[in-house]
């Protein structure tokens, strides 16, 4: 912990936001981090990116290695608690901080975890419910036609349902085609997809067929884990589905290759 905190305490009245881009975005899809940064700046917040950020610890946590995650959770709490708000472009990582850190820790650390949880938000929720993003509403249908995949952690732990849809509609005039089975898991489940690949693939296929049935050429969602898994499966099956994170769509970043597509 020798690196200095880049605290931007409410410069010029703007609330300070610590952006935790999540490990998947950091490593595999930095454009999601870039898009998040732009959206938060657009929402008139003083964004900073804590330089020590790595991973929230979900993989080990979900595998039941609580002992390995506790010190990491403390480190993440200490890294983020300086800010007025913490924002993550992922429902499951935000859920990890909001729901599971307090469960994992005790005593003073539990209190700190709860305090952090109270100011931690998934990106689209923060933009809609906290930042009150100024939107010049686009004409309906003037934007892309997309299918939206509700990730389970966001849906059930954080009640993320309408926020990304509202942004997609109003910010980029998207035409949203709803899936038949909106509340069914896509089969990613973190390490589940690698521990039980056949079952996971079956679930991904159900989700992808649901997407195809909507006729939308683009699949989007708020969690890179699900999107990487679905894009990878779509690629394997040669399905013609363009997969992009919702943050990318919201800033109009659709020129580069979609997830799992070549240059």
């Amino acid at each position: 912990m020798t690196e200095t905190q880049h605290a931007h305490h409410g410069t010029r009245g703007k609330p300070s936001v610590a952006l935790f881009v999540t490990c998947l975005a950091d490593l595999l899809r930095p454009s999601v981090g870039e898009a998040s940064l732009r959206l938060l700046r657009h929402a008139r917040t003083a964004v900073s990116v804590p330089p020590q950020q790595t991973c929230c610890g979900q993989p080990a946590y979900n595998s039941g290695d609580y002992d390995a995650v506790r010190p990491l959770a403390k480190q993440v709490i200490a890294m983020l608690e300086y800010a007025d708000y913490v924002v993550l472009p992922s429902g499951s990582c935000a859920g990890m901080i909001c729901e599971h850190y307090p469960r994992l820790l005790e005593g003073e650390w539990r209190d700190r975890a709860l305090q952090l949880a109270a100011k931690t938000y998934e990106l689209t929720t923060f933009l809609v419910e906290v930042a009150g993003l100024e939107i010049q509403a686009q004409a309906p249908g003037s934007g892309p036609t997309v299918a939206y995949h509700d990730s389970c952690a966001g849906l059930r732990e954080l009640d993320i349902r309408e926020q990304p849809r509202k942004l997609l509609r109003e910010l980029c005039g998207a035409d949203i085609r709803e899936l038949q089975q909106r509340d069914v898991c896509c089969g990613f489940g973190g390490t589940f997809c690698a521990k039980m690949p056949e079952i996971s693939a079956k679930m991904a296929d159900d989700k992808l067929n649901d997407v195809l049935a909507t006729g939308a050429p683009i699949l989007t969602g708020g969690d890179l884990g699900c999107l990487l898994s679905l894009a990878g499966r779509a690629r394997r099956l040669d399905m013609d589905i363009e997969v992009r994170h919702v943050a990318e769509l919201l800033v109009g970043d659709t020129d580069g290759p979609a997830i799992g597509e070549g240059d």
Binding site: A25, R29, P30, A194, P197, G232, R235, R236, G260
Partner: peptide, 26 residues
């Protein structure tokens, strides 16, 4: 844009491609 096989990742690549990272990390 995606790997069909990747060392140490057969759990993933057995059933799906692995999307290639965009290059430099965020």
């Amino acid at each position: 844009g995606a790997f069909r096989r990747l060392p140490l990742a057969s759990g993933w690549t057995g059933q799906r491609d692995f999307p290639v990272p965009q290059g430099k990390t965020f």
